[in-house]
């Protein structure tokens, strides 16, 4: 079964009477454990696609089934729960809470979880150790380098053990060394069974994924996964 199933998704924004079509009839299926890159020039609709995929925005029309649940029809409370439990976000601009320690930033999603596990702090420490920040637990984002901040973000995205990691230009603000480190982390997460959707305009970064989807003008331009599926079938 597909973890992510988007059928004929359209998204348009109405701005001062003008309607701008950002996504136009996108159909996209991603299976559990897949490692997918979405590439495309800026303005192609990558970020909007990710927003819908991450339940941060609702499609104007079309059907989005996430983990067997039609999320296009969910109310705010349920949608928030989906974001909280099933999706981990990694952003280009990190989006950590300023003035709050790394440890607390990592546990932030648990604040809004249905149940806060008793070992929340312990788990956050483990995750920070996993991304190599065991010595930076009590530092605030301002005291951390860009690479370190990105690793805190990754640790935060994992705290609720989500099935999907959505990463929006995760290497965009990093130097090449930190970029490579970050990509290695993602590679390892896929091995652990996470589904990763990577949005990037960097084709080198995109190559890490097993499947590359190219978006152009709000539509899928090409999808290497289609070939792969076919290849798998022919095997």
């Amino acid at each position: 079964m597909n973890l992510i199933e988007m059928n004929s998704i359209c998204k348009s924004y109405r701005n001062i009477g003008f309607e701008t079509q950002v996504l136009n009839n996108v159909t996209l299926h991603i299976g559990e454990g897949d490692y997918v890159s979405i590439i495309g020039p800026s303005g192609a609709g990558k970020s909007t696609l990710m927003a819908i995929m991450g339940c941060l925005a609702q499609p104007t029309s079309g059907e989005y089934i996430l983990d067997g649940e039609e999320v296009g029809k969910l109310n705010d409370r349920k949608l928030s729960r989906v974001r909280n439990e099933k999706i981990g976000f990694v952003f280009q601009a990190f989006h950590l809470l300023p003035g709050v320690t790394a440890l607390e930033n990592v546990t932030l999603p648990l604040v809004y979880a249905k149940q806060t596990p008793g070992n929340a702090k312990e788990r956050a420490r483990e995750l920070l150790a996993k991304v190599g920040l065991e010595h930076r637990l009590h530092h605030t984002p301002g005291q951390l380098s860009g690479g370190e901040q990105q690793r805190v973000t990754i640790a935060r995205s994992l705290i609720n053990d989500p099935r999907i990691i959505l990463a929006d230009e995760p290497t965009g603000n990093l130097d090449s060394k930190n970029g490579i480190e970050t990509m290695k982390t993602f590679d390892n997460l896929v091995k652990e069974g996470k589904t990763i959707v990577l949005i990037t305009h960097d084709s080198e970064v995109a190559q890490h994924a097993g499947r590359i989807i190219s978006i152009l003008d709000g539509q899928i331009d090409s999808d290497s996964g289609v070939h792969r599926e076919r290849n798998t079938l022919s095997l």
């Binding site: 928030s80 729960r81 974001r83 909280n84 989006h95 809470l97 999603p109 935060r156």
Partner: peptide, 13 residues
């Protein structure tokens, strides 16, 4: 900050 909180699961409420 509101965006961040919403992204990690905060409801409107």
């Amino acid at each position: 900050e509101i965006g961040i909180r919403r992204a990690v699961g905060a409801t409107r409420r």
